[in-house]
Amino acid sequence: MTVAADPVLISRSRARRGIRWQAISDHAILIAGSLLMILPVLAAFLTIGASDVEISRHGLQVSDGAHLVENFDKALFTRGGFTGAITGSTMLLNSFILGIGFAVGKIIFGMMAAYAIVYFRLRFATFAFWVIFTTLLLPLEVRILPTYEVVHGMGLINTYTGLILPLVASATATFFFRQFFLSIPEELVEAARMDGAGPVKFFFDILVPLSRTMIAAIFIIMFVYGWNQYLWPTLITTDEAMFTLVRGIKQIYQSIDGGSDIPEFGRALALAFIAILPPVLVVVIFQSWFVKGLVESDK
């Protein structure tokens, strides 16, 4: 296409003045939107450098940073909570265990089940498909109490298994991998079989390498989802040593309202920062995979 034939350029050169105003207003709207997203978080984090007294007196503020190290130190290393058994770094570790454990569990179980459904002649494949995909319909939130009773009955309260497995019990990853496997040309299986590759070899030598981008995308989405879980961890972890960051923050903002002492604003804000940072970094750094995975998985 030549430049002259491009109608966008033609119209722009014809009405340069008008377009320019248009462009300025477009950017203004986008900048306003970006500020709307950034300002609340930025205001909170600029405040971390202030002392609790200053924060309780003036609210969110641009601090001079005098108490920055102190607040982060308190957030990460001072024992807190009712029993005094938990530090921010333990919560950080628990959050990573939940996020990574959840993502890995989803991917492994999902890939296995999707492989069985797509690539094998099974009499009950359709039945298995429906049994698995019905779970897409009901989020954990609507069946929390009975799930809690079941997990409690199994003695899995305050264990990583009890924390992670019930969250894994849905078919999102299976569904996603099924869609992806169906889009892989059939000739690949035929060729592999002709070369004498069995199902296990085909899976590891052909399917897994082909799915690499998809696995990465799913991992990012699931990691963020697992990291940000709140309701289920709130119910299932009563032992403070098992708290995740997102769960543990509750303890702190509850203390903001009660008590006659000055609440630990600085510590709470520093913990919020630590809770936000890892998932945001993952999403921003692996943006293109993340967007691709998100948009494609829901088709």
């Binding site: 986008l30 939107g33 970006s34 997203m37 950034i38 609340p40 978080v41 205001a43 909170a44 405040t47 609210g59 969110l60 963020v224 990291w227 940000n228 709140y230 997102v246 923050i249 509750k250 903002y253 903001i256 604003f265 709470a268 804000l269 919020a272 809770a275 936000i276 998932p279 945001v280 993952v282 999403v283 921003v284 943006q287 967007v291």
Partner: peptide, 21 residues
């Protein structure tokens, strides 16, 4: 990038920021 990163902020943490704001 600027408009999508809030996706990764957990709802309870967003709620806490809301309390402060």
């Amino acid at each position: 990038t600027l408009l999508m990163w809030v996706y990764a902020v957990a709802p309870p943490v967003a709620g806490f920021l809301g309390v402060m704001v």
